[in-house]
Amino acid sequence: MIKQKIVLRYPPHVVEQPTIYHLIKDFDLMVNILRADINPKKEGRLMMELSGSELNYQRAIEWLREQGLHIMGLEQQIIWRSDRCTHCGACTVICPTEALAFNRPEMTVSFDEYKCVVCELCLRACPARAMETLVENSNSK
């Protein structure tokens, strides 16, 4: 068994393909969609957790690449710029998954990218703007 959080980036020409249907039907994977940003005829983005057998997962990833989709790990989506962070802690009550956490007694902020679900609430809630995303999208601005 394998369980992996990934991000799919759809070029405009494949946005309308029933990708998820094939992942379930042809590769017997369980799909848990965390977030989707899909618009007809525009580049789209889908964040999800895939689980299933290792072999099926690898075959599915290969198939997705063949369809022209870009695949990235979820943990690469949000970047914590520790040089910008002042360790106030304002983000820690906004982050819904405790990916941004406040450590006591050190009284410092830490970021666990594996807990992050890329909701992006921290991007604007951080007064020092220490959180950044690599992906251009309407919510980050």
């Binding site: 360790h87 106030c88 802690g89 304002a90 820690t92 009550v93 050190e106 009284m107 410092t108 007064p127």
Partner: peptide
């Protein structure tokens, strides 16, 4: 109620 600070205690230290 969860609390958060706007002032950095680590910075103060």
């Amino acid at each position: 109620v969860p609390t958060a600070s706007l002032s950095s205690y680590a910075g103060a230290r």
